[in-house]
Design a protein around this nucleic acid. Sequence first.
DNA 1: TAGATTGTTAATCGATTAACAATC
DNA 2: TAGATTGTTAATCGATTAACAATC
Lengths: 206, 206
Amino acid sequence: MKQSIPLPVLERLSILYTVLERLEKEGRTAVSSAELGRIMNVTPHTIRKDINYFGQAGSESGYSVSTLRNTLEKGLRFDVSRKACIVGLGRMGLALMNFSGFKDSNIRIEAGFDSNINRLETLKTDIELYPAYEIPEVVKRKSIELGVITVPPEAAQQTADKLIQGGIKGIINFAPVIIQCDNPAIAIRNFYVLEEFRILSALIQI
Amino acid sequence: MKQSIPLPVLERLSILYTVLERLEKEGRTAVSSAELGRIMNVTPHTIRKDINYFGQAGSESGYSVSTLRNTLEKGLRFDVSRKACIVGLGRMGLALMNFSGFKDSNIRIEAGFDSNINRLETLKTDIELYPAYEIPEVVKRKSIELGVITVPPEAAQQTADKLIQGGIKGIINFAPVIIQCDNPAIAIRNFYVLEEFRILSALIQI
DNA sequence: TAGATTGTTAATCGATTAACAATC
DNA sequence: TAGATTGTTAATCGATTAACAATC
């Protein structure tokens, strides 16, 4: 039930979960695969196939919004709270640190790191801040599972190394660098800002 | 040669381009598909197959770094300069507006928009700022092709509508919302911050 | 009941990996 | 030459779409 879920499916299910959260907040109780498909811009087949990775979850009158949300929450373990940290407290790092979407999620930002100690002193935040060299120790001590890399490209690999040293389990990397990591159990997600613009640039030429 | 390139290939080629830029800066002149594969964590076959969407580009002694970079630049039109704008000047919007990676790229941030006029007045930047209701007019007048959405979720769809009204060609959406757009020629890329954490959360449970 | 909808198997489609001839 | 490497076709793998029986 775990790694058996293909990545594209996991990505869609994760978005589906957010959609269901919204529908629930709006007071909707039932929803069909057809409607979910329209909302998510995929075919109803895909919706049903994706959902069925968790076994039967609907009835002949569609899906119950709350039941389905619950099935996904349990199945994908979104009910488990995860500690995260952010390395590199430039504008992007700070933007993520203050991201309001974490509020009613199970992601807890437990620490921020920066190599510039002066910067650490001037920042005002409730989150504990540490110099970058303390990454392995702090990650280990606080059992932080997820790390975000928002440092300049030159520092990205060594930042990853320190996180891994501390026993990090997953990384979101914003630096325009391909992180090398020989431990396949560590999950890495990349977001390359400039690449996104370039991809659009290539896509839009009619 | 255009939409014939599958999206996964385009995404890899775009990263490959960045890798080649770095190699070129480091003074490297030649590189093999095997080495590029190691750097990018893909098989050499994939590297060669991807590159061959542009026809023959290497020789029996590997690829010339500068020639290959040039081939990709021409093929993917990275040599064309694109105007972009950012809607929603919160922390994330400002972080992107000041992103240093645009410096020696062909992406030009030409305008920033926010619905809060007071905020526009307090921001210090060289980039022209406008109230959100002027989006369609400004986008059209300045021929802005790419738009970034960093507004709260409630405002995301209407922001997209205004950008589209102005004739935008591509959108990068950071709001946790699935943008509805019936024009298939408009490319949309999404980055869902919380989703990324959730996907990691699901991936790391051994 | 009739219509709508799911779950699941089969068919299609597409992407990745493998294999290998050609070449310097 | 021998070794290394590409380009390209073929084989495999995986994901999406289609079809349809089962069910309320």
